[in-house]
Amino acid sequence: MWMSIFTSVEVGLMFALMALGVYLSFRILDFPDLTVDGSFVTGAAVAAIMLVNGANPLIAVTAAFAAGFIAGVITGLLHTVGGINPLLSGILMMIALYSINLRIMDAPNVSLLTQTHLFTWIREGIGGTWAIMGVMVAVVLIVKVMLDFFLKTEFGLALRAVGDNHLMITSFSGNIHFYKVFGLGLSNALVALAGALVAQYSGFADVNAGIGMIVIGLASVIIGEAIFGKKTIIRTTLAVIVGAIIYRIIVALALRVEFLETGDLKLITAIIVILALVLPKAIAKQKETMRKRQRRLRLSAQKG
């Protein structure tokens, strides 16, 4: 039990990077980007194939980040230059990436079990139960702080305005096409980075590993926002990270229930997202009703 929660947090930290990417496209740009299902695997594939060919793990991870960026940029260009609607641009890119990922790996999956990679480095270099956890916490925090800073720069503010009010940002000399393309690039770069880390952690890259990834990302964003709110950027990015970890823990606990099987995972994910979407609204409505009822009671008490 303790062990499975511990691993959930470790994996959750890796998926947190993916969730931050989804937050960028889905919330900041208001662009439901399904490229994620493909770019997650692209990250894994690029890193895996480079590691198999003896590349330095850090370079392999950087290459995965860059590959994800390119994938996102292409989705962005399909939408902005090609005039294709956001959902369809993402779906087209996702489907295209499936073949591209197969080409990169040259096989449906690549094993990394005998390779030297980031986590073998950490296990051997630092050692101890907490090594990977510690490094992942540091990595995620660094990414978070950088993202928080970025979203408050002149450039980042304009990026946020694109998803908020594109009429306004155009009238203040912001090129919305450019910001969308760049934002989607950054988003998918983070997703690919997560893919590269997860592949090394689990010891293989699989061409089907990305199926439903967007929903997991959304689940993390929505769970996080529902629990921690989204008052400021700093708080929301933290919420998304914790959301990703909580999601992993929920899944781990759900899988311990006897009648559930590994194959039920996608169904569980869908149900979690539905609950996270519906419950906060229902609770808010209930609160509102209670508040009004109490106010009526108070008013009638005053009169009476």
Partner: peptide
């Protein structure tokens, strides 16, 4: 956002 309209936007706060 309005203030930084006159030149290219930078990575400064």
């Amino acid at each position: 956002i309005a203030y930084s309209r006159v030149k290219p936007r930078t990575l400064r706060p």
